[in-house]
């Protein structure tokens, strides 16, 4: 109505304010309803890294020789027949790497899933019910949180592996995954508790209670779906923690010596004095693979964070604009005036 008569906003030369630009960009991207969130560069890179490593771990073991076949010459450098050379015992490093990747991924996924389950149990229930339930569950969470992680894992792992009657299970990667799972949930539980506490106060939760929903249904049908991005981030965090934890444990000789993981490979390399004998092909591939996997999962995690909290997306754009303005001598000076 009255808007027709207002003069046009004067065209401003120079950079558009950062927030406006980025907001427009995000608004454009989000206008259409998408089943999946926007794919950012970070997410894409992370997914590619993780998928390639996962495919390697799943498929490669079918095509390599037995990783425990010691008939090869010892300490062969990379070359014909053995792409990544052999170890001191004549094992093919590439074969070990393929099986090790599979073993590490298995530990990571099992331990991450277990940790997430426990975190939901402790965090969401504590946050939703409050009161005495909250006090007890939070107490347990806090105890788990302040106990230093790796020493606890070492003690439990050493204890369990020396328990009589477990047989080959005592040295399996499944057991290590369980140990890592039950020691790695506390951090996620704290985050989930805080979020559940805030969601509990939402009107739609109150409304579903008035409609007559039972508490567990309220938690799992009304609250949990709204936590999915957070749960995904926590799961990935749990997987990273487990893979690195397993590598640490194995390096110390407390890992699943009955199976092959990237960690046990490093442990073998260390006990076999790979560094001293210049056998770089023995310890660099597993180390690099752990680092790469950690990077890929972390990138996915950051991307999820940006989807959950879109403000984070503005930060790189803001920094870019700032740099550009600085270059062109149009930066905002200390006192706030535009130079």
């Amino acid at each position: 109505m009255a808007d027709n008569t207002t003069p046009e906003v004067p065209v401003r030369t120079g950079p558009t304010p950062t927030s406006t630009l980025a907001t427009i960009r995000i608004a454009k991207n989000d206008r259409k309803r998408r089943p999946l969130p926007r794919i950012s560069g970070k997410l894409l890179t992370g997914i590619i890294i993780v998928v390639v490593i996962a495919l390697f771990g799943i498929l490669a073991p079918f095509f390599v020789q037995d990783p425990r076949f010691s008939g090869n010459d010892a300490l062969l450098p990379p070359g014909d027949g053995h792409i990544l050379g052999t170890t001191k015992l004549g094992y093919d490093v590439f074969a070990q790497l393929a099986w090790g990747t599979r073993g590490s991924l298995f530990v990571g996924v099992v331990a991450g899933a277990l940790a997430l389950l426990l975190a939901i149990l402790f965090g969401v229930l504590a946050g939703y019910f409050g009161g005495v339930v909250d006090e007890i569950l939070t107490l347990l969470t806090n105890i788990m949180l302040v106990i230093p992680g790796l020493p606890l894992v070492m003690v439990i792992a050493a204890y369990v592996q020396n328990t009589e009657g477990l047989g080959p299970f005592a040295r399996s990667s499944f057991l290590v995954a369980i140990v890592l799972g039950i020691t790695g949930w506390a951090g996620s539980a704290v985050v989930l508790r805080a979020t559940a506490k805030s969601l509990r106060m939402r009107d739609y939760v109150a409304a579903s209670r008035v409609a007559g929903e039972r508490p567990l249904r309220v938690i799992f049908v009304e609250i949990l779906p709204n936590l999915v991005p957070l749960l995904a981030a926590q799961l990935i965090f749990g997987v990273i923690f487990a893979i690195l934890g397993e590598a640490g444990l194995s390096y110390l000789g407390l890992g699943p010596t009955g199976s092959i993981t990237l960690g046990t490979m490093l442990n073998d390399a260390q006990t076999g004095q790979a560094v001293g004998s210049q056998a770089w092909w023995w310890f660099i591939p597993p180390g690099a693979l752990i680092a790469l996997l950690g990077t890929g999962l972390s990138l996915i995690n950051f991307a999820i964070d940006e989807i959950v909290n879109p403000k984070l997306r503005l930060a790189p754009q803001a920094a870019r604009n700032q740099r550009k303005a600085n270059r062109e001598g149009r930066s905002v000076s200390e006192n706030g005036a535009i130079a």
Partner: peptide, 27 residues
């Protein structure tokens, strides 16, 4: 039954409109 003040907060963003009306019927 109760009608809440803020219709932007009282419906679960995750669920469809049908879900909101069906659930109390089902219960």
């Amino acid at each position: 039954q109760m009608v809440f003040q803020d219709p932007f907060a009282s419906l679960n963003p995750f669920h469809t409109i049908l879900h909101h009306v069906e659930r109390p019927l089902r219960i």
